[in-house]
Design a protein around this nucleic acid. Structure first.
Length: 257
DNA sequence: GGCTTGACCGCCA
DNA sequence: TTGGCGGCCAAGC
């Protein structure tokens, strides 16, 4: 029934309205921002704990609604636009370490968190094989499972899964496609062409005969080896047989000690 | 709880 | 040199 054009029920409900409790919005919504990145515009969702979900605009057809839907399917929460990006996001996307940027990985399994933690430890411009990540995550034979985890990496770029490559020297797959993986690595000045040339010669490790240390070819220690003192090895066993020990920086294998 | 699915690895022909 | 294949392991149905 209408009285003077005002629905009495609506009128009564208006009288019941009150301000939302402080912090309610943060409990209901996750916030998101768009930000530039080496792969073009990036959509970044973050909670009060840290960044939780990242996708390139390209991967969701430049549609924030598609990003929100992908987020909702995975985390069962709605998104709301944020006023500003979380602290440390922009420098982290420029490849700087120690920016203080926090990640919210609370929705992941222990294995997934261990894999992402190991991957986060790979320096810019360097690569590590899937088997290396598996070993660092405490599951030495779970290389394939590492690939499965990284295929679902909720925070690509921030956890640099583009630095995880196949043991045979090829780059392998990537969430946003192999071309983007290569682009990111070249942008970090990784010596991809050298590594591929070594791999074609069956050399997956490089040692220095002055230090007796053997490294992954992208390790910054390996890149400093003077060519005349550089030796390639197909396996770590070959290197060990020649008297070389694994590099303590890139850790191509666990030291026996 | 069993089956299927992978951004893998390494052997072998 | 390359591709096939069995093994492996965690996640998702």
């Amino acid at each position: 029934m209408m009285i003077n054009g005002i629905d009495p029920v609506l009128s009564a409900l208006r009288g019941l309205s009150c301000p939302a409790p402080a912090g309610l919005s943060a409990k209901v919504f996750t916030r998101w921002v768009a930000t530039p990145s080496p792969l073009g515009e990036l959509y970044v969702a973050f909670t009060g704990t840290g960044v939780q979900f990242v996708r390139t605009a390209e991967s969701v057809d430049g549609d924030p609604a598609a990003f929100a839907e992908a987020y909702r399917r995975r985390f069962a929460r709605p998104l709301r636009t944020a006023d500003r990006a979380p602290a440390g996001l922009l420098p982290a996307l420029r490849g700087r370490r120690g920016t203080g940027l926090l990640l919210d990985l609370s929705a992941l399994s222990d294995f997934e968190r261990d894999v992402l933690a190991a991957t986060r430890g790979i320096p810019a411009g360097e690569t590590r094989p899937y088997g290396w990540v598996a070993r660092e995550a405490g599951r030495p034979r779970a290389a394939h499972a590492v690939g499965s985890v990284l295929a679902r990496n909720p925070v690509p770029l921030l956890v640099p899964c583009h630095r995880v490559v196949r043991a045979d020297g090829r780059l392998g797959e990537y969430l946003f496609g192999p071309a983007h993986k290569e682009k990111l690595l070249r942008g970090e000045d990784a010596n991809l062409d050298d590594v591929l040339a070594y791999a074609r010669q069956g050399m997956h490790y490089l040692g220095s005969d002055t230090t007796g240390v053997v490294c992954f070819p992208t390790c910054h220690q390996a890149r400093r080896i003077t060519p005349s003192h550089r030796h390639g090895f197909r396996t770590l066993a070959d290197a060990a047989a020649a008297g070389y020990r694994p590099c303590r920086v890139c850790r191509p294998a666990v030291d026996a000690a």
